[in-house]
């Protein structure tokens, strides 16, 4: 396992040398959050409750949801996987006693960690700024569950990214697919609006997909719209999804390699 730890360490060092790379995400992120807050502020000038959400609940949904996004973000890991594939770097992992999937996982941990610190810093400022409009209530049990969801969400999102990146085995480049799938995932995880706004059928689809565990579910738990029991079950489902994603990723990797070998990059 020491090799994977060294990968984390190397990548962390690399990120420290190129701090601005991922830091530059911050400006865009901040704008996205502010846009959402503006929209909801305008809406709540006319009404008091939208689909069961009061104004402070909605603002909390946005702010704490984004905090959750940042804690689990991997900053376009799929593009790294894509490049590794079409540039033939994957070959390196076929000749050495190291697993690519474990490598990319470790790599991502090292890569996200520097940006993580900056994003937490930024979110603290956002929270401080909107503190009058936010709900702060967190009992220890919920906090623990949320922490579990942060860990699980992080892993789940790495799997999403790696799988999207591996599409490059078949298509070489993933720019368009990457964008569309990114929006799709954002939509179905509840980044744009609370998923209860959706018609029942669409909501049922969301519940069958793994995406809502990385935004919607944790914010619901935080806002008290999910009971502790429901939250615990959600975490169990999320962990089950991780197991499923693990096998799907492995399957995709073996299939992809067959393609890779055929083309002989």
């Amino acid at each position: 396992m020491k090799k994977y730890y060294t990968v984390v360490k190397n990548e962390l060092q690399r990120q420290l040398a190129f701090r601005l790379n991922l830091l530059s995400y911050r400006v865009g992120n901040l704008l996205e959050i502010v846009v959402q807050i503006i929209v909801w502020t305008v809406i709540f000038q006319k009404v008091d409750v939208v689909q069961g959400y009061a104004r402070n609940e909605m603002i909390s949904y946005v702010v704490f949801g984004w905090l959750f996004v940042f804690l689990t973000e991997n900053y376009g890991l799929e593009n790294i996987v894509e490049h590794n594939i079409f540039e033939g770097k994957v070959s390196e992992f076929l000749v050495k006693p190291i697993s690519y999937l474990k490598y990319i996982f470790s790599f991502s941990l090292g890569r996200m960690s520097v940006a993580l610190v900056s994003s937490i810093g930024m979110m603290l400022l956002v929270i401080l700024f909107f503190r009058d409009q936010l709900i702060f209530n967190l009992d220890p049990v919920r906090a623990l569950l949320l922490l579990g969801m942060v860990g699980a969400g992080l892993v789940l999102k790495i799997y999403f990214a790696v799988m999207i990146g591996m599409i490059a085995f078949w298509t070489q480049r993933i720019v368009g697919i990457d964008y569309s799938l990114g929006v799709f995932i954002k939509f179905f995880s509840g980044v744009y609006f609370p998923l209860v706004f959706l018609p029942p059928l669409a909501l049922a689809i969301c519940k069958a997909l793994p995406f809502m565990y990385v935004f919607y579910v944790p914010t619901q738990l935080y806002l008290g719209k999910l009971s502790v029991g429901q939250g615990a079950w959600a975490l169990v489902f999320e962990l089950a999804w991780i197991v499923v994603m693990y096998f799907l990723t492995k399957l995709m990797w073996t299939r992809g390699l067959r393609k890779y070998e055929g083309v002989g990059i």
């Binding site: 020491k2 090799k3 730890y5 060294t6 990968v7 190397n10 060092q13 050495k96 006693p97 190291i98």
Partner: peptide, 11 residues
């Protein structure tokens, strides 16, 4: 750093 990584990879 790459040498050290290879050291770990090849044990």
């Amino acid at each position: 750093e790459s040498f050290i990584l290879n050291k770990e990879i090849y044990e």
